[in-house]
Amino acid sequence: MAENGYTYTLTRTLDAPVAKVWEAWTNPEQYAQWANAVPGSVEMHVRPGGTWKATMVTPGGEFPLGGTYLEVADKRRLVLGMNVPGRPEPVAMSADFTDLGERSEITVSQTSDTKEERDMAEQGSTMLLDGLSKFVANS
């Protein structure tokens, strides 16, 4: 085991300016479209301490998620705390946005307690980034 858990980091270059990518990630209606969330289930209060929630559609059924924004730096960084049943502290996932002019880069990272949790989280984040990439390139 790593000293502080098991971490994954995913980086994507997107064919859209950072303002468009930020809007897609922080606007509930847009997020629902690309993140495969149940329409109307997404709520976002994008500010430090603000809450968020979404019901995700997965092959195994619907999966409710929620938590708080731990850090918000406009068009640069989001750190989301995700509430996990049975855990006293939220699991933090960071998303860093880099302005590349007409393109942008997003880096998502999360640390988990076990390799299995990390692998599941990485798979979920890969699906999110796939959806985001397609959405911003086609909208």
Rank of each mutant, 00 (worst) to 15 (best):
P17S: 07
A137D: 10
A92H: 12
P85G: 04
M56N: 06
R76P: 00
T26C: 11
T55G: 03
L70S: 12
A16T: 00
D15T: 12
L128D: 04
A35D: 01
V46Q: 04
T13F: 07
L78T: 00
E71I: 10
A92T: 08
V72Y: 00
S125A: 15
L129C: 03
G40I: 10
G86A: 11
T98F: 11
K20F: 11
W22M: 01
E62A: 02
M93E: 13
R12P: 04
S112I: 10
R12E: 10
S94W: 07
A92R: 12
T26W: 09
M44P: 07
V42C: 03
H45Y: 05
M56Q: 09
T51E: 13
K53Q: 14
N36Q: 04
N4V: 14
M44V: 03
N83F: 02
Q110M: 07
T55K: 07
V57H: 08
S112Y: 10
W22N: 02
G61I: 05
E116R: 09
R103Y: 05
V79L: 10
E3D: 15
V57W: 08
T68W: 00
S109D: 01
W25F: 10
L65A: 06
Q30T: 04
G101L: 11
F63W: 13
P17L: 12
M82E: 10
P59Q: 10
E71N: 13
L65D: 03
M56E: 06
T11G: 05
D15K: 12
G124H: 02
P85K: 06
A2W: 08
A32V: 02
A73C: 09
G61D: 03
Q110E: 14
M82T: 15
A137L: 11
Q30S: 07
S139F: 11
P17E: 13
Y31I: 05
M82V: 10
N36L: 06
Q30A: 14
A2V: 12
P39Y: 11
